[in-house]
């Protein structure tokens, strides 16, 4: 794997081919907010909060840094008026689902997001997929998955598997940025027993 140089927020950063922009930034101590990213899991690109501006070959575009691979001489800007505005809207949209999530509240403060910009639809899950992917990729148990699509998409435990595996694991609980996961688990347990 060859090494390459790119620029992030005016800083020269050394990276290896195949790395994502997010990884390169983190290795240089530059922080980019994330919600669905987890170092043990495959890149997912679900929440879009890690969006950044990149300039390559004279063009500027917006990319999702946790899935965008580094390129030689790429010029990355992790914060700009545009980036901040987009992150603000993303947080406002997510807060319609999970108003009291501490992670979202921190982001709201940072980007000046309004609490009540969008009508509330308190589903609590923000579809980050951390629970689903952790269970599948790290624990290889597949006890929890997504069902349905679009606005009806939600997580769902497979009771037969959950009743055997989850009680002694629960490693996904702290990953959830909201309380949706625990609520779904308690509900599954109640319905199943």
């Amino acid at each position: 794997m060859s090494e390459l140089l790119l620029q992030i927020d005016g800083k020269e950063v050394k990276a290896t081919e195949g790395m994502t922009v997010l990884e390169a930034a983190q290795s240089a101590g530059i922080s980019i907010p994330t919600l669905c990213h987890h170092e043990k899991l495959d890149p997912f690109g679900g929440c879009r909060i890690c969006i950044v501006e990149v300039e390559s070959g004279g063009w500027t575009k917006l990319v999702v840094s946790c899935v965008y691979p580094v390129e030689k001489d790429l010029v990355v800007t992790t914060r700009s008026e545009k980036v901040d505005r987009i992150r603000k809207t993303i947080v406002e949209l997510l807060m319609a689902h999970a108003l009291d999530s501490p992670e979202l509240q921190d982001l709201a403060q940072e980007y000046g997001a309004e609490r009540d910009r969008f009508e509330k639809d308190a589903s609590f899950c923000i579809h980050c997929g951390l629970c689903v992917r952790y269970c599948a990729e790290v624990k290889k148990k597949n006890a929890v998955g997504f069902v349905d699509r679009g606005i009806n998409k939600e997580i769902s435990f497979i009771p037969e598997i959950a009743s055997k595996e989850c009680w002694n694991c629960k490693e996904c609980f702290p990953l959830c940025p909201t309380s949706a996961l625990q609520a779904a688990f308690v509900l599954t347990k109640a319905l199943w027993s």
């Binding site: 689903v132 269970c135 599948a136 597949n142 006890a143 929890v144 998955g145 997504f146 069902v147 349905d148 699509r149 769902s156 497979i158 598997i161």
Partner: peptide
């Protein structure tokens, strides 16, 4: 194939 995946597909 994990049941979670099948459920996702059949509800999709």
């Amino acid at each position: 194939v994990p049941l979670t995946r099948i459920q996702h597909i059949v509800t999709f």
